[in-house]
Design a protein around this nucleic acid. Sequence first.
RNA 1: GCGCCAGUAGCUCAGGGGAUAGAGCAUCGGAUUUCUAAUCCGACGGUCGCAGGUUCGAAUCCUGCCUGGCGCGCCA
Length: 624
Amino acid sequence: MDPRRQRQRAGGPLGPTTRINRASMNRSIPDILFERLQAAAATAFGPDVALDRAWLRSTNDPKFGDYQFNGALPLAKQLGAKPRELADKLKDALALDDLCAPPEVAGPGFLNLRLSTDFLNRYLQEVPPADPASEYDRLGVAPATQPDKVVVDMSSPNLAKEMHVGHLRSTVIGESVARILEFAGHDVERVNHVGDWGTQFGMLLAHLRATQPQALGDLDHLAISDLEGFYREAKQHFDSDAAFADEARRTVVQLQGGDPETLRIWRAFCAESLRHCHAVYAALDITRLVDRGESFYNAQLADVVDELSQKGLVEKSEGADCVFVEGFKTREGEPLPFLVRKSDGGFLYATTDLAAARFRIRDCGATRVIYVVGLPQKQHFEMLFAVLRKAGWAHEGVQLEHLGFGSMLDASGAPFKTRAGGTVKLKNLLDEAVDRARIVVEAGNDDPESVRGQLSAADRAHIAETVGIAAVKYFDLSHNLSTDYRFDWDHMLALDGNTAPYMLYAYARIRSIARKAGVDFASLPADAPITLEHESEIALAKAVARFPEIVASLVRDLRPSLLTEYLFELSRSFSRFYDRKLGVRVIDAEPESLRISRLRLCDLTARVIHTGLQLLGIPTIEKM
RNA sequence: GCGCCAGUAGCUCAGGGGAUAGAGCAUCGGAUUUCUAAUCCGACGGUCGCAGGUUCGAAUCCUGCCUGGCGCGCCA
């Protein structure tokens, strides 16, 4: 039996107007309110008047209530009436007694809605417990009824080199987006479209043959500790030794020609490079990434161009095969071609992208493909999508999105480089994050009586690792996707402000309340009533209750910064709630029913923070 | 030249048709015999790059301009 149904029954008799039906429990508060507004509008203005969902929004000032409906203003024009009169009529037709205080018409015609504590009590009380068998604590949010098959194209480093800071954003944003869509109930595949093919591999394999002949006999154990250094050596070898350069070019031909021995070395090299990548992914807590590099599509490239030709989309231009799409121009104002085959017969990045998209849609059944790739490639994806549509590979039921993002800059606003001007290895950056986090975490109060004073060395190491990585991820995700941002260690590791250390501490502190109170949050009676009294706990309850609507906006807009902002607000609400001066007592609250209610509110807050951070790809820690 | 992204408080950034534009940091002031002081409250601080336009209403949408970054055929 559905546990949610069971508890609702246990919740006791609710009158017909105060009853929240089971379906509504899974819905966001604005969804519930909007339904009422629609019903009221039908009564007040007739069935033909359609309301726009965007007219209902949360207020930006508590004095206007919690939600405001602004529809009277646009409707005034449509219906030829005065906005305030319409708002009054709507208010009179509105049946909201079970949800809100009596609505108020304010300003030019805003309808202000303030949630009642009664409703909040019930809304939160009916949040189902986490299902231990499920990856995500759903917190009452229903999964999508029509799941998409989503491919998230993310990370995608070049296997010829080490992952560098330029791969951080795609990896971190891609993971978060994947989790958000997973949480929403979609079938998500994270694809690592690695660069595992191309001329530079000729150079690398030739260099490997020249410098480590012994390794060729035992390719299963090929180990290159410093890939970046290896690449530099190979490049130098190539530039300084003409005979070697010829050898490198011959190796490219062998590789492309399918020479088994060369392929064997190539495979071993890619495997070793991927091991480096996955060490970084492990540090970043990214586990379900499918490595499907460019070479996977090699055998499909000729067919892609053939099919485009058959469809009459290919034109020869200066010896190359091109598809022309309307609306794109070159520097000189000529039509800009989308090159799919070079004049020498070779294929390009664009060809591989076409093949990959076709494969994902046609062979994997993807209904949505999201490319988490930097903003500079925006035009490339616009053209790619246009060609995919023209070719019919992306039919109407398929959603294609380029989720572009800005660059990471250093603290002075310059491109992020080492002192010597080279690229910064992602691994080094993450190591530094953990080192710096260790210093932050070990600083300050070390009283042996305190929680922190009793942490073991292993605990401390684990905390430093979690906080360091979380700081980097959270800082990235808390920025608007489209802007460049300045990488700032002090900022991201600060214990104040909208940072990972703050969020993780907030979570750990709430979890410690249970220990201190001698209870296990998970075994608090799920049907114990929640009774909100104090202003600070009502504010906290409202913040917790916004979680479903935040999830909905995340799924719609794929903007993780909306989530970090919400989590920060929620944590601040919690701090006020728990403040000794302006908040309430929890552990020693009386009577017992109030204590249980407040502990449950703590638990719900912790669960929302936990799940929210999980959607950002950040694990929590119990003590800090 | 064309296109894209950005320009919001001293600094770093949110907010992308709705009421008096927000937060953190910094600065200044206050609380507290601690349910983790990694807390809370308050003050200071803005011509939302500039100029027009649309709208009952614009930081938000449109047009033009200024500044910065990036992209613009056989690299990925």
